[in-house]
């Protein structure tokens, strides 16, 4: 029993340690300078000095958040639309469009957005939004089309209107699957936002790219570590929420 207790607590402890480390790093990077110093050559700075890591982290997260919220709203709305009787004509097409869309590399979407809206945060947001739509739409579609038939039948039989069925039964039931889509979307967005700094968006990619350009491994490493830690933590957090909602309904978790 004791061993099981330690095993159960270990992941939470690791998570907590990672969060503390991450916060310490972005707020007080100076503390970690001695660790990174050996990676620099000819007395280059060991800590990124063209902007605060904290600001870049927050900007990075803000970009991802805005894009994900917009993508979630649009993707779920579209998935609802094509699963209602009025929009069912679009269902097969929307499926193939998602398949096609997924073959577009995020970098290509990012680069192609530049001619349309110019440099800066905008093309990054557009790329994040467009690319983030796909996994959410796909999962929402899966969720809404694979509801247990007898539950939907029971909802109809109880006299729920179409809207009531959607809000009270169909959406809550597909929530875990939709959350899974959001999780995938966020992870892709975190990565794409990093590349966004090549089109002049202010994100953590700036640190990595500055390191690559000036051959400063310390920059590359600190940028990479922060982004990686953010991605792992957010992925993990969203998985936990997903598992919780699924378990409450007695669903198997993938």
């Amino acid at each position: 029993m004791k061993e099981a207790g330690v095993k159960a607590w270990l992941p939470s402890l690791l998570r907590l340690a990672l969060v503390v480390l991450l916060i310490a790093f972005v707020t007080n990077p100076g503390w970690f300078e001695p660790l990174l110093k050996p990676l620099t050559e000819s007395n280059a700075p060991a800590i990124y000095n063209q902007g605060s890591l904290l600001t870049l982290t927050l900007l990075h997260l803000r970009t991802v958040l805005i894009a994900t919220v917009a993508a979630t709203i649009v993707a779920v709305a579209l998935a609802i639309l094509v699963t209602r009787p009025a929009g069912v004509e679009f269902l097969p097409l929307s499926r193939s469009l998602v398949n096609i869309g997924q073959t577009f590399p995020p970098v290509a979407v990012l680069a192609l957005a530049v001619p349309a809206v110019g440099f800066g945060e905008k093309p990054t947001l557009i790329a994040l939004f467009l690319y983030g739509l796909l996994p959410i739409f796909e999962n929402a579609l899966t969720g809404l089309t694979t509801l247990p038939a007898n539950v939907v039948e029971a909802a109809r039989g109880a006299g729920m209107t179409g809207w009531q069925r959607l809000v009270k039964v169909e959406l809550p039931l597909s929530a875990p699957i939709i959350l899974g889509g959001i999780r995938l979307s966020v992870v892709i967005s975190l990565a794409t936002a990093t590349i966004g700094s090549t089109v002049a968006a202010r994100t953590l990619g700036e640190v990595i790219i500055a390191g690559l350009l000036s051959n400063n491994l310390a920059f590359v490493l600190q940028g990479g570590l922060i982004v990686a830690a953010l991605a792992v933590l957010i992925y993990d957090g969203l998985s936990t929420i997903e598992r919780y909602t699924a378990r409450r309904m007695g669903q198997e978790t993938a």
Partner: peptide, 15 residues
């Protein structure tokens, strides 16, 4: 809403 309806496998709302 005015007629009761029960089905095989009960169809309870899992959430």
């Amino acid at each position: 809403r005015s007629i009761g309806y029960a089905i095989q496998g009960h169809g309870l709302f899992p959430h």
